[in-house]
Nucleic acid binder design. Sequence first.
RNA 1: GCUGGAGUAGCUCAGUCGGUAGAGCAGCCGCCUCGUAAGCGGCAGGUCAGGGGUUCGAAUCCCCUCUCCAGCUCCA
Length: 676
Amino acid sequence: MGDAVTAVTVRLGDAAVELAPDASVREALGRLGAMRADVVAVAVTPAGADAAQEWDLDRPLVEASAAAVDVAPIRAATPEGRDILRHSTAHVMAQAVTDLFPDAKWAIGPPVEDGFYYDFDVARPFTPEDLAAIEARMRELLAAKQRFVRAEVTRDEALALFADQPYKREIVERVEPSEVDVAAGRDEPTFTVYRNVAPDGTEAWVDLCRGPHLGSTDRIPAFRLMRTAGAYWRGREDQPMLQRIYGTAWESEEALEAHLKMLEEARARDHRRLGRDLELLHLPEELGPGLAIFLPRGAHVRRAMEDWIREETLARGYQPVYTPHVAKEDLWRISGHLQNYAELMFPAMEVEHATYRLKPMNCPFHVLAFQARTRSYRELPLRISELGTVYRFERSGVVNGLLRARGFTQDDSHIFCTADQVVDEVMGCITFARDLYRAFGLGDPSRVAVSTRPPDSLGSDEQWEVAEAALVEAATRSGFEVEIDAGEGAFYGPKIDVHARDAIGREWQLTTIQVDFNLPERFDVAYVGEDGARHRPFMVHRALFGSIERFFAVLLESTNGAFPLWLAPEQVRVLPISEDVLPYAEEVRGACAAAGLRVELDAADDSLGARVRRAQTEKVPVTLVVGGEEAAARTVAVRPYRGEQRRGVPLDGLVAELVAEIGAGRRGEIPPPAVD
RNA sequence: GCUGGAGUAGCUCAGUCGGUAGAGCAGCCGCCUCGUAAGCGGCAGGUCAGGGGUUCGAAUCCCCUCUCCAGCUCCA
């Protein structure tokens, strides 16, 4: 390094070309036949380096400080390419904001999933009219064909350049020298800035940025400003609130349109809308935010979920308990919830000189169940389980239908076990979670993450280390690649979160498995060991659905309300073609009901077409149309929600078929259907 | 909790300059007796989120509160 390089060999796959050091990577790609209009940047790997760097197209080869480099074009329609495109669009937006609001101070403007944002400190929040004006100004800047020009500066130069930009100065001041800087013998980091240069050579704007960027502003094919939002500087509540503008940018108008259409569809999939339209849920204002009523159709689905988990829980050796919804404050003081969790608990209720609290968690009750009598090591592992409804006073801004509620039900279990049983027990929970995801059509877990010790937490270092290691071992031995979410554990112990991906690709955290060493200590929980002495058990807490309500909402949005047969609130609908076949239609309904199917007869005074339409829009999995032909032959015409119609299907055979499908569905043997 | 946006019939939405509210769907009643995604006609349905203010007059303008949405923060 540092030696004068006279020529650089540039390789792309099998092709190679030798160029002068001052040639740009753009030129190199051109010579290699890999330059296209949609190439936004270049992945450059200097010989000997183990990772590629993203470079601007106009950056000269000499800056690689290597005699040979590997290059690969980064195209707009790739995740990396879109990030660059969006990052550049964020810069253009900041320039437009500065043009329209000269006093605006800039914070950060990164690409994010599906778009970008930029945070500003401005005198007043942006209005929708401001957004339209900013977007219009951005279109002028795109047409102005400003080039993005990269430059390296020192810390002092950067501080001088952004003398009137306090947030940029703060960023500059906080940066430590990177590994690259250290390797190059620099004790100060190098900063990069990007100047926006107009075709006439004048500098229109400059921003601190790691890059890379597009060659020029007219290379942004399609963008849209989406919305404004408040956001704390550096994401901390004690910091000033900035005004954030979200936008999105894409490689083509078509891609932008497709994205906007997808957003529209996601809105239509909202569980609150589906819950209302399909008469599953009722979220009236009279109840209060974060509280829900399950209407009969929703209740049928929920019961199917609850029946499944109850049966499986018993089959896997858990003991059921029932516990109350409130308890005296003393209990919450012993458990530590009043000290550590008070802001999430509903306020106290005074009753006959005693103070009661709604339960935010089921754990203390399960501990009391364990302590109902002296426990022997022979009883361990003891798995205590219930569907326990808890109430948490969530801050008003975070409540979100069933996904984030103030009252919700956990399929909650606490496993009391010895140290050497922990790994097996946690593995059992992970396997259980996998089986549950499969049965409910979510496929296998998409992500398994162990959350480690957070800053404010109870317990000793040794306890945490042992428990974290046990969780990692259990997840690994269950066949999952474990990710570590550092510092994300609960205050009372580390946890494993099991995530699933829904039908439209969104990831949800559902199952949580936690080790709790707080409660056993606080309640002085003990069992009598083989040696006759008292021993402290480990306590593993797990909720597989997470929350029944939340899982229900995820399932509803994932299936778009078209539940698999075994979960559907109404599994079969019978439609008589005319009044004279009503007796046979009744018979069909009766045959289904006798087999345990949830079935309705729609003999309303509407045309068959209207009733078929109603059955389809209500997403009933199986519609049976019966007329004279069917009555005579004791068959049905089957119209499934998805798939082909079948006529002349024998009634008995169909009922057996549906019963078999329900069994298979419950056992997780039916793969999820195509996206509805 | 914080920032912005919104709240009109069960649902989706219109309502101009401040002049006391309308459509489609759903519901109810009647006609039609029907072969696979909307047959026809009629009726009823509103404290315009709630409260206060300005005004001769408020869905419309102002203030407060509640709720919802999008974020931030937080989380199952």
